[in-house]
Each structure stands twice: as C-alpha cells, then as structure tokens.
Design a protein around this nucleic acid. Structure first.
Lengths: 225, 225
DNA sequence: GTTTGTTTAAAACATGCGTTTTTGTGGCTT
DNA sequence: AAGCCACAAAAACGCATGTTTTAAACAAAC
C-alpha cells in the first residue's frame, strides 16, 4: 500500500505547484517537502524532473485522449457518414475537456498546464505531447474540415488556433483575470460560467466573414517607416 | 560613447533571450556572454535581474503607451464627442501595436514578451505593468464601453480578454504555429498576414450573440459525477 | 530465519545561479 | 599633476538546484 502512495502524492503535489508557478520555478524540494516525501523519491520513481513533468501531463492527457476518441467514434456513428456540424464538434471537445479533470476536481490545473505547455520553453514537453497525442488532434481537425467546407484550408487552420488561444489563454490565466473581474464587477466567475461565455464567441469567430484582401496593403503602409 | 553601448547591448540581447526561453530559463550569464559584456554589468546598470526584466518591457511599453494615448487623442478629436466605432478602436490599437516594434524590427519579440507577462508567474512584472500602463488600458476599455452600449459590462470585460488572448497567444506562439502551418500548407505566413486574418475573427467575437442562460445547467450535468 | 528485492531516508556532490566585492582603467576636473 | 568618477573586468560569495550515493527499513520468498 505504501508503494504507490508516494508516486501519487508526488504527482498530486507536483501538478498543483507546476500549475501555480511553472516548471522552472518549482523545485523538486518544493514538491517533495510539501508532499511529505523524500527528495530522492522523485528521481527514484520517475528518473528525472523532465520525466515527472511528462508524467503529470500523461495523467491528464491519457484519459482525455481516450475519451475524446470514443466521443468522436460515437459521433461518427450517430451521423453515419454525414458531416458533423461544427457546433457539435466544438461542444464535444468542450465537454470532454470538462469531464476529464472533473474527476480530480481541478479543471483550472489542467488548463494552466496546457497553457504552460505552449508558453514555457520546455521543448521536450511539446515534442512529447505532439508525438503522444497528435493523432487525436489530427482526427478532430479533419472532422472540422468537413464541417466547414467553405473555409479555405489555411483560414480554418488559423482560426482553430485562434480559438484554441482564446480558450487556453483565458482558462490558464484564470486566476489573474478572476482577480480583476471580481474587483471591477464584484461578481464571482466560475469556470463553467466562463465556458458558457466562451461558446458564442468561439462559434462567431469560426464563422466570421473571410478577411478582406485589400487590408494587407493598408497595414503595410502604416507599418513601414 | 562606450557608456550607453553596454546598456543597449544588454537590453537587445536580453529581450531576445527572454522571448525565446522565458525569464527563469534565461540566466544573466547567458545574456552577458552573448552580449559580450561583463557579468556584473547587469547588476551595475540595472540593479537586479527583476529590474532588467522591467527595463526590457519599458523599452517597448513606454513608446506604445505614448503613441496609443496620442492616437486616442486624435480619435476623440475627430469624433468630437460621438462614440467611436468598435472597429476603429480595434484598428487603432492594432496599428499602434504594429508600429512600435516595427522600429526595432521585432513584433514577434514584443508579443512573446506580452505573453510571458501573462503566463509566467513573475508577480512583480504584472504589478509593474498594471501600475505603469494601467491607465492607457483603462482609457481604451472606457471607449470600448461606449462603442458597445448593448453589451453587459461583464460580458464586454470577458470578451476583451478573450480577444486579447487570441492575439497574444497567436502572435507569441507564432514560431511554433508557423512551423506547422508551413509544413501543412506550404505557404509563408507574415505577421501582417496574420493580423489580417485576425481582424474579422476578433470583430465577430466581440459582436457574437449573448450566451444562452440555460447552458449553465446543461454543463453542470456533464461535469458532476 | 535468513536472504533478497524494493522502497524510503539522509547525506553528499557537483553545478549553476544572482549578487557583491575587489581591482583596474580611462577620461575629466580642479 | 593629482584626484576623482564612471565604468569595466575578474574573482569570489553564498545559496539553491537536480542528481547520486550510501545506509537503513521492511516486506516477500525460500
């Protein structure tokens, strides 16, 4: 019983500290002391700090990947060959993202970790995530492609990342934003409240009119000097 | 002449390294060796690493703040009391953001730094930026408020941050995204090209329909377990 | 009951960090 | 010419980090 308890305690503590302060700013001594575990336990069980970081991600992304795959399976079965509407696809992704960390009560941590994976240098992490979970994302984008046949490929690519940016940025910087929001508007904001607000914005962004070609020149004028 | 040269070389090198790897991951030795400057020069000229970080930001944000203020002055004069359309406000902000770093040829660095300011822990930085440049942002949001009278205050607050997230996330993670985009679509993407694509998405996001109240309950069901 | 393998505990190690101190240098003032 | 001052260079300091090593505890296997 004592065997795996240490591993779990390390992971539980590490994910919180990583999410709060980033990877470089969180030392193994921070983790092990707060987890009331010996310092050497991390290197013993995981091998290195990098491996610990990847393990923290795997504990979120493995269930997510699995569930998202089956959700897409179910969706494809239900629509039996017909294109799945964009709103349904986005909705499915949202609920999957929300479902996974609900079991460990911390969507905030999950999103913050995703944000770190993007923003923090940590080249090994991006590579790990890409090669480990790239196929789920590819499958999703292919379905989105069929759902938006009128959108040029490049435009869809960018808009998907725009929307990804909106969600990750918002939910990962949630604490800071929440502070400002509550100071200015004296109202509490829950994650689900935010997701509710995000939905129409994301959909509208994906369905926005195509950019005007002439804009390019206009900007070129103002930028050059 | 040798006096300020060191300071400039430190700033030039630091901003690039910070943008590439983050603050904690960039040591003073990294900076000073690449800038071919003595290690102690940083602490001599800036006092500390924190102060260096703030100085790097100030070199971008001071001109930005000044120009944005005068751009808004001009705008308010031109509209003499009438509400300024949202598109014009966004456009003005965009061109100001694009103009400032154009002079030092690196919008990418500027946006990446902004992204770091959000995502990286670095409490001192957020405090510094807030107290130093909070008034420009307040002035801007007030004008946005008048431009979108039908939007509830909270909704407008969040949508502004959504859009901020879209832009910062995209432009700060530009290198990674550009790699993927060029691999998939074999086309080069310039920053101005991206801004052109961002514009309709941002406008559409701000003008999206208000969220449906019932959604809250729906999500609550799926999240609980 | 001894042995064996796994886990924890404690200590030590090597490295890199931000910062400080000391010394050297060149130019400007008095 | 002497002194001063701004700056640069080099070295050292103290500290925190990731990792490794050594020793102890403990359960399972024979």
């Amino acid at each position: 019983m004592a065997q795996s308890d240490t591993v779990t305690r390390i992971l539980d503590t590490a994910e919180v500290l990583f999410a709060e302060r980033g990877f470089a700013e969180t030392s193994l001594r921070n983790i092990t002391s707060k987890a009331r575990v010996n310092l050497a336990a991390v290197n013993y069980h995981f091998g290195s700090k990098k491996a610990l970081i990847q393990a923290v991600f795997a504990r979120y992304l493995d269930p997510f990947s699995e569930r998202f795959h089956s959700a897409l399976d179910e969706l494809e079965a239900r629509y039996e060959g017909r294109d799945i509407p964009l709103e349904v696809l986005l909705e499915t992704m949202a609920t999957t993202v929300l479902t996974v960390p609900a079991e460990r009560n911390s969507l905030k941590v999950f999103m913050r970790l995703l944000g770190l994976a993007y923003s923090q240098a940590q080249g090994h992490l991006r590579r790990y995530i890409q090669q480990q979970y790239g196929d789920v994302f590819s499958r999703f984008t292919e379905l989105v492609r069929r759902a938006t046949p009128d959108l040029p490929d490049a435009e869809r690519f960018w808009r998907l990342h725009f929307m990804l940016g909106t969600v990750i940025f918002t939910l990962s910087g949630l604490d800071a934003l929440r502070d400002i929001a509550e100071k200015d508007y004296h109202q509490h904001v829950s994650v689900r409240d935010l997701v509710r607000r995000l939905r129409p914005v994301v959909v509208a962004g994906m369905n926005a009119p195509l950019p005007d070609e002439r804009d390019v020149e206009h900007h070129a004028d103002t930028v050059a000097h």
